[in-house]
Design a protein around this nucleic acid. Structure first.
Lengths: 154, 154
DNA sequence: AGTCTAGATGCGAATGAATTGCATTTGCAT
DNA sequence: ATGCAAATGCAATTCATTCGCATCTAGACT
């Protein structure tokens, strides 16, 4: 039996060609607790796919494709230049990033409702008139509890 | 006379070694209207320095040095992975980024005061307890007026 | 079920930003 | 003016990401 990572009860969005590579990447993303880099996805996909490994370039192409089709969003962390991807689950999460150890902490509440914010700005900043806001990204940065402690007694 | 970009009335922060390359980069940044990439700074420095051109690797090292010493901040734009640098002028600016033409629009008002925001979060999210927030970054993304129009009638 | 084909993949080579090693040069404190 | 730790230039290197092209495959159509 074809028992790899397939035949799970995952629902793949319709209207696109679902190759085994795409299913695999999709599943990896759906199980991820936080945004992943192409490299990480590449490794995780390799594990899932029993003995196969999918080409890294394919992973990149799949991610670009997913992004174009609105299935995933990409971002980068402060102080790091590699792009990370996460499934677009409708809602959104923001993070606090430690400038020292680079640890990231997910914030469970968003400090501003998109609509509210966009609205206020559309009215205040002339430059922003006509701009259609579809999303936002917020990042707090500073030092996590562990690193804050270290910085006091060096 | 040594008439290059030097002998202007620029005040260089004290306590560090001011080579001509560093002065030049510093001046380029102080004249910039928005964050610049290392490449851009490299080119602009080249122009300022009459006939000289400073090594690109030097520019990178200077920027890293400036950042460590709190003179500049670095970030990246949505949908672009090259790092950009701007002088730390105390205040901070946020941008709206067009996902289509990549044009950026500076927002002249910040939707949340750091203190206020950090405070509320430090109390609400348990994960954030002990985290010392030193700054934040907000990016709106969407489509600018020109591109919004294009998207309606393709 | 078998055929067909646009589009997807694998592989390796190419790009481009950023970093590093090392020999040489230069602020700047003495 | 002198000396040295730190900064620079240059070339080579790393690492993420992209691209060209030959081969394969999902899914539509017999």
């Amino acid at each position: 039996m074809e028992g790899k990572f397939e035949n799970q009860e995952i629902q793949y969005p319709q209207g696109i060609k679902w190759t085994k590579q795409r299913k695999c990447v999709y599943q990896v993303l759906s199980e991820a607790a936080e945004p992943l880099s192409a490299q990480q996805i590449y490794l995780l996909s390799g594990e899932k796919a029993r003995q196969d490994t999918y080409a890294l370039s394919t992973i990149y192409r799949i991610l670009a494709f997913f992004e174009e089709n609105g299935l995933v969003n990409s971002t980068t962390w402060m102080g790091d230049d590699t792009v990370v991807y996460e499934l677009d689950r409708g809602g959104h999460t923001h993070y606090a990033v430690c400038l020292d150890c680079h640890r990231r902490i997910a914030l469970h509440s968003c400090p501003l409702s998109i609509g509210h914010f966009a609205h206020r700005h559309g009215e205040q900043d002339e430059e922003l008139s006509g701009f259609t806001v579809v999303g936002h990204k917020i990042e707090l940065y500073g030092y996590c509890s562990a690193c804050s402690a270290d910085r006091l007694k060096p």
